[in-house]
Design a protein around this nucleic acid. Structure first.
Lengths: 223, 223
DNA sequence: TCGCTTTCCAAACGATCGTTCGAATGCCCG
DNA sequence: CGGGCATTCGAACGATCGTTTGGAAAGCGA
């Protein structure tokens, strides 16, 4: 795998250190989009390079392997998502003199991925890629998911100070349940919900969905 | 694909109509186990037939294709799980004169998959296969997940009669959130939780976890 | 036992995949 | 201008995969 600094696949983020990395950026953008739409295993290196308009060997030359490419996109996007969440948590902390209420802590967890999933958001594909990679990723990706929990620590601690009467064990479990609610927001699950409700739940914007999720999770935490 | 009646892969369920389908049963059992452990894409037809001790062509002869084999196992196991859930709902309905409380309705949804996941349960591998197939399955599997919601209807209706003041739309959404909690109980997610809590949540038996989930979801529904 | 159907078997087919290689090309700096 | 290096390119390699095929074996009713 390459150890050189890497280019962001989205055009809205500028290059970092490279003078010219158009090929790399094209590969990253095409790969993220194809992976998000078709799934990791159903996209070949040939599909990516054809979509990006570059040579077949570019993936292995710039990233080392297909898995390394997936890992690189995943690492960048999850770091970006964690930054959004952490920023919201910090803002809530600042607003409440260091002790934000449960609802705002959970909102900091839920709102970024929900906003990213909005069709009008440029991060929509990135969000879909993250969801794909979480379940279809290689061993390396899954290992990161399993072991890297540093970005969740501030949320767990904030919840424990907001709920001092609740045993820490219980806080962790309820955080786990809340993350489950968030991770369940895939297209297939929405389709199933819409089929179940006969279209009753179809016209729901992000704000309404966020409010619903917050109502549910907040009540669960305060139980 | 074969249209003949099919054999159950688990030895605890008797054959249905076949006189002799040892090969088929061996394939189903081996396939389910390997799929559950390694994932659908990381198990080849050769792995399955070698594990089952049968010829390579057996899968295509008895099931038509690898995808059809996956679909068959998925169909059988999800039907079995739905039966368990529906039975629990019926029992709760009978106990409460046709109007079971929210907690028991949710329990009927949560308890069967949780009990199946218990290491002491013979259905543990089956449960792990279902989880795998839900996210890694073919288009046919995903289509069933998206469109077949008949088994959820009784639960939605029971919840609406138990919560007459809540708009049906809200009931559907909260049912969606509850299903998300259930579907999040994968090994990787548990590992992440344990890593986050420094082992504080490791020693939790099924009954304790069920109580926690019920507390959380019930409060969410009654919010 | 005969004839027929079902099942099993070894072997190969055709396709796709990730990866590698050597040469060619472009680019920057001295 | 020219040497050196990074990049690109076409082409192929090696491996794995799901599937197919034709014949052998086995089960079974008549």
């Amino acid at each position: 795998m390459s150890t050189r600094p890497l280019q962001d696949p989205a055009p809205d983020l500028p290059p970092e250190t490279e003078r010219d990395a158009a090929t790399k950026a094209a590969v990253l953008a095409a790969a993220e989009r194809l992976f998000a739409v078709r799934g990791l295993r159903c996209v070949s290196v040939r599909d990516i390079t054809a979509e990006a308009g570059v040579n077949l060997a570019s993936v292995n030359y710039h990233f080392g392997s297909k898995d390394a490419l997936v890992f690189e996109i995943f690492r960048r996007r999850t770091a970006e998502l964690s930054r959004d969440r952490t920023r919201m948590l910090h803002e809530a902390t600042a607003r409440h003199d260091g002790k934000p209420p449960v609802r705002e802590i959970i909102a900091a967890l839920m709102e970024p991925p929900l906003r990213w999933s909005n069709p009008a958001n440029v991060r929509r594909i990135a969000m879909q890629f993250i969801i794909r990679a979480r379940s279809e990723g290689s061993d390396a990706v899954r290992e990161v998911i399993r072991t890297d929990v540093s970005h969740l620590r501030p949320f767990a601690e904030a919840l424990m100070t907001a709920l001092p009467h609740l045993p820490p064990e219980e806080v962790y479990w309820r955080l786990h349940f809340t993350l489950g609610m968030i991770h369940n927001n895939r297209f297939a699950e929405f389709d199933r919900l819409h089929a179940l409700s006969d279209g009753l739940t179809r016209d729901s914007d992000v704000d309404a969905l966020l409010k619903r999720m917050l109502d549910f999770a907040e009540a669960g935490f305060l139980a």
